[in-house]
Amino acid sequence: MRSIWRTKKLPTRHLARDIALVCAADAVVGASFGAITVGLGLPAWLPMLLSVVVFAGAAQFLFVGLVAAGGSPIAAVAAGLLVNARHVPFGFAVGDVLGTGWLRRVVGSHLMVDETVAFTLAQHEPARRRRAYWLCGTGLFLSWNAGVVLGTYGGQAIGDTDALGLDAAFPAVLLALLLPSLGTPPTRRAALAGVLIALAATPFLPAGLPVLLALAGVAAAGAGRTGDRAGARDPR
């Protein structure tokens, strides 16, 4: 049982192909975002502007949903920020791959999304982590925004993306990339605790908060023996 977790690596030669697949799926979701937003009666520039300057799918869907339902823009911003707060710990964990220099840090930070972080996490050597981060980040930025433009202007052709099962693709993508990092018992304990906390909190708390509360699960990693390799990658 245990050996299954141990050393499943993402082969480097498949990295670009795997990223391309995720980009294609996200482009379709982006198209649905554009189509849904204008379908809600919001102006056509809004989905495109949000996608370029915010570039965070879950927060964008939430934002336009709240605004279209007549909610105040302040409440929509607060809800979006809550969902995006997870980027703070993401940034601390993968910030080293951006390199030095302000331009790289500014551009690289903007490209930080769940999939970028997950692809980076699945790589072990510094050079591969950098390659995964920048390839996934730029690929997703381009495909997401291209999808949004197409969906905004050709919305009727998109239809219901739920029929394509793409809502199952997002968790599957993250899970596939995450699995190799669950290699040690303390990390598995922490992940399990975090999952239980997030699921238990979801019915009661606004979106974004359950995932942040899951961080308390990290304490479960320290509850066992020390000397385990956390996260199954080299800390430098």
Partner: peptide, 30 residues
């Protein structure tokens, strides 16, 4: 410190795992 780096690695795994679980099993509050 090395220990903090390790905890950060665990934290990201925990966050992504929670994202997987909530996006796979829940929609809104249900």
């Amino acid at each position: 410190p090395v220990r903090a780096e390790r905890l950060l690695g665990v934290a990201v795994v925990v966050l992504l795992a929670a994202l997987v679980a909530t996006s796979a099993l829940t929609q809104g509050h249900g």
